[in-house]
Design a protein around this nucleic acid. Structure first.
Lengths: 363, 363
DNA sequence: TTGAAAGCGCTAACAC
DNA sequence: GTGTTAGCGCTTTCAA
């Protein structure tokens, strides 16, 4: 018995992408996305040949290739990404997990990554963990299974778990987080150096009592900042450091304004620019002048930092660059290459107008 | 001849997820992600049963289910999303296309959409068209094939093309863009109403000469604004309107500061908040006082609008809500339901301090 | 060069 | 209840 193979395995006789559908209680002919079989049938070739043509294989006779292209064109055929991904074992999608999409810092990373990935034909899946550790783990796992690789921005997951997770997540690159003793590629900012620059600046202005508005406790970069601050306070005679648990968002800083005042500190070092803005705004409402009564510094240099009143003194970090380089690293990993050495971006201190000489009390 | 079916079709005899790999010139055993067959073999059941258990089908004997779960656990098995998607015909991913990721307006939409989608177990793919019409079309098509539905935010594609495209993109929902005479679900902002509110406010302050800093020419919402502005100028005796081509970004507004001054207008209506900020900053550098010398209004009410100096008078639009409702619409469409009527969100005028009485010249 | 057929890993209709 | 089997739509040996 001769097997008639016309390129269509289970469809009706003609090659047009119509299908007899019966779902619910309706039976009707509806137009359905054409598949490789339809094109093959229309062009009178095998599906393998269509596949070759669609992928630009040079081993197809020009005449055939033309016929296939014409058929594909006529049917408005687009190969299914899904099927292609399954067969190929890759999706051309990478994922980014961030703690908080409303943070301009992560928005910039998102943008940098998205553009770099797009430039090499990859798409970006985004997920927000809402600073929630459990969710972060689930999301990362989930996202990874939709994509070929992962970028974790400022992951809050504890070190050991991150280490375990990373095996299932690989290829993965970390942003703003290093796992010492692991070989997880990571791009980070030297927060300690940034803090040291800020402290030096403040000390030179005569400030001796600083208050630190701390970020999320689970934030590794917060811990770095705290450590640098404490080290400085220990190393400098007459330097008083007060720490106030705060957060990472505008509202957190805003809510902390009174507490800041209560410390009698002459300068506040905020976890990041958002917090600094909040505090700035809160202090303004309380009638406190910045920098005359109190100085404020931020961290990140988000786009609006230059336009606040007064413009914010802050430590600038290359957010876009983080995104772009994250892509480079990930791309290397996905191609089985070495991701290169980890790097520590050095923040640049931008002295603007939110910092000034320490007020001389009782003068 | 009896067919031995052990749940594994093409693998070696044992059920552990190891595979003899030979690529390039290395041949070695490497651990590979376990698949449904490995679990089936380990649990001594068919793959169908594993599938049932993984999907929580109630028709599996508890004893078997437990065995399967144990096996899955032991192998650290995670069903492949890809294969699942292919079989199911859906990906549980939706895509968002925006013209410009750096615009806080779109960031908020992104966030609202992402959260709403996540709440129903869907992931978000993001793509940025860079205000490029060609790219927008390609991206939309491409993104759609990775996902189950599309949200187009402020698409710049011309109407006819959008109409044609939408067939291949469906299900799709439009943000900030309506296609009259089509049944494309769309959520938009009543920009004309916002502009009217702004104009009324400005007129009541005594302004008679307004300059409009226009947005991208391909922006439909820009055209709405222009039309409303012109209508107002025609309807109001003594009202002069000057239009200056500008753009949608901070830099555009900043660059327009001199041109604004040259018009001698007493108030500037900026395309959006970003442009207004830019102008504000540019004017500040030129030593012009806002609102004493000139008034400025924005549009959108992005998060920082309240914190500029002076705080920006603007028309507030529910950005997050746009994202959330876009999801609701899309979800309805994906489930074959009606997306409901289109809605026009009415902007709310927020009078802050960037607008004041028109300066009385030669007074 | 081209085609047949086996996979990719999962789901679901159908049979037992 | 559970297994068999035929898909989902593509890629890629392997033969011819």
């Amino acid at each position: 018995m001769s097997l008639k193979t016309d390129g269509l395995r289970h469809d009706e006789e003609d090659s047009s992408p119509l299908r007899r559908t019966s779902r619910r209680n309706t039976t009707r002919r509806e137009r359905v996305a054409p598949n490789i079989g339809h094109v093959a049938a229309a062009a009178g070739v095998s599906r393998a040949t269509v596949s070759r043509v669609m992928n630009g294989s040079p081993t197809v006779a020009p005449e055939l290739a033309a016929r296939v292209r014409a058929a594909a064109e006529a049917l408005n055929y687009q190969p299914s990404r899904l099927a292609r991904s399954l067969a190929l074992g890759r999706t051309s999608v990478v994922s980014l997990i961030v703690p908080d999409l409303s943070n301009p810092m992560f928005q910039d990373i998102l943008r940098g990554l998205s553009q770099a990935a797009a430039a090499q034909g990859h798409r970006l899946l985004v997920a927000e963990s809402n600073e929630n550790i459990q969710e972060e783990k689930i999301l990362a796992l989930e996202a990874r299974r939709h994509s070929d690789g992962l970028v974790l921005a400022s992951p809050r997951v504890p070190e050991e778990e991150l280490l375990t997770l990373s095996e299932q997540l690989a290829p993965v690159v970390l942003l703003n987080r290093e796992v010492p003793g692991s070989n997880l590629p990571s791009l980070s900012v030297d927060y300690a150096a940034g803090i040291r620059a800020i402290v030096t600046h403040l000390l030179s202005l005569g400030h001796r009592h600083l208050v630190y508005l701390a970020g999320p406790v689970a934030s590794a970069s917060n811990q770095e900042r705290v450590a640098a601050l404490r080290a400085a306070s220990v190393a400098t005679p007459g330097f008083t450091l007060t720490e106030i648990p705060c957060g990472s968002m505008f509202e957190d800083g805003h809510a902390a304004a009174r507490a800041v005042l209560a410390t009698k500190a002459t300068a506040v070092v905020a976890f990041n620019d958002m917090v600094a803005f909040g505090t700035l705004s809160g202090l303004h409402e309380l009638g406190v002048a910045v920098p005359d009564d109190i100085s404020i510094t931020g961290f990140d240099d988000i786009p609006f930092a230059r336009y606040t009143t007064p413009p914010l003194t802050t430590a600038s970090i290359p957010k876009n660059e983080l995104g772009k380089q994250a892509w480079d690293r990930l791309w290397a990993l996905m191609n089985g290459e070495s991701p290169g050495h980890n790097v520590h971006f050095q923040p640049r201190l931008l002295i603007r107008e939110s910092t000034g000489p320490a007020p001389t009390r009782h003068a």
